[in-house]
């Protein structure tokens, strides 16, 4: 059997198996317990019935996720450049960045809402807080990991600090930066969800996906709850795919991670 054919067949077979198991478990449960695991078709129906509400919620969450993500990118590039200046700067800032990272966002989210105001603002800030750490750590690591001999060549060529940054340190940091970006892309929708879970209906008209989840679970609308999870998943996929595409554009020509196996 050709490799190409297997590449399509095997994932499809896995999917079919999972769905079959899913139905199996559903019908294996006692009838009065079956609400705990709605069938895929019930979830699809809920997706259709709540389509408008879920679409609006998804847009609200996307706005917060995107804003928080972009804010994290901008801040971590600026901070990474600062941190790459010297190990002294790093030593004086890293412990506090660590503390920020260790602080459970879920716990402080309610107070954040009070600080920055409800709605899109707090969703953005919470997304930012969740995305920002992997980005700043990877960006900094990239900026300080430049090949020593290349730095020496630039010195011998009398390159200015600006030239060294632009032509050497920044391009050399790109693979690290994109590693951080990929992690952040998977975290952004989750961060936004946590955000609008806490910020409630104020996050745009009718709130985001986190608020939908809150409502559906309080109303025991479990198929709709699963539908909300599916939409969140999709959002995560879109974010990740966009970052993978950017990463490919920036790196595929020269970076070893895009090396074809047969070369």
């Amino acid at each position: 059997m050709s490799r190409k054919f297997l590449n399509v067949l095997l994932p499809a077979a896995t999917g079919a198996l999972v769905i079959a198991l899913w139905y199996g478990v559903h019908f294996w449960l006692a009838a009065e317990m079956r609400f705990l695991l709605p069938t895929p078709d019930a979830i699809l129906a809920a997706l259709r019935d709540n389509g408008d509400a879920l679409w609006r919620a998804a847009l609200n969450t996307t706005a917060g996720a995107l804003l928080g993500f972009l804010l994290a990118v901008v801040v971590s590039i600026a901070l990474g450049l600062g941190l790459s200046l010297s190990s002294l700067v790093r030593a004086s800032l890293y412990p506090y960045l660590m503390i920020l990272q260790m602080t459970p966002i879920i716990v402080i989210a309610p107070i954040l809402v009070l600080w920055v105001g409800p709605g899109l603002r707090s969703v953005t800030v919470i997304t930012f807080l969740i995305c920002f750490f992997p980005l700043v750590v990877n960006t900094t690591q990239g900026l300080i990991s430049t090949d020593r001999h290349l730095v020496e060549l630039f010195r011998m060529w009398r390159a200015t600090r600006g030239q060294q940054l632009l032509h050497l340190r920044v391009p050399a940091a790109l693979p690290y930066f994109f590693t951080g970006l990929r992690i952040a892309a998977t975290l952004a929708p989750i961060g936004a969800l946590v955000g609008d879970y806490t910020a409630g209906s104020s996050a745009g008209d009718g709130g985001g996906l986190g608020f939908s989840a809150l409502i559906y679970s309080s109303q025991a609308k479990y198929p709709a709850l699963f539908a909300t999870a599916a939409v969140t998943c999709l959002l995560g996929f879109i974010f990740t795919a966009a970052v993978l595409a950017l990463s490919w554009l920036a790196l595929h020509k020269w970076h070893d991670s895009y090396e074809r196996a047969d070369k």
């Binding site: 060549l153 032509h167 050497l168 020269w254």
Partner: peptide
């Protein structure tokens, strides 16, 4: 080592 810039 050749010490080339791989992105150029």
């Amino acid at each position: 080592e050749p010490t080339l810039l791989p992105w150029l």
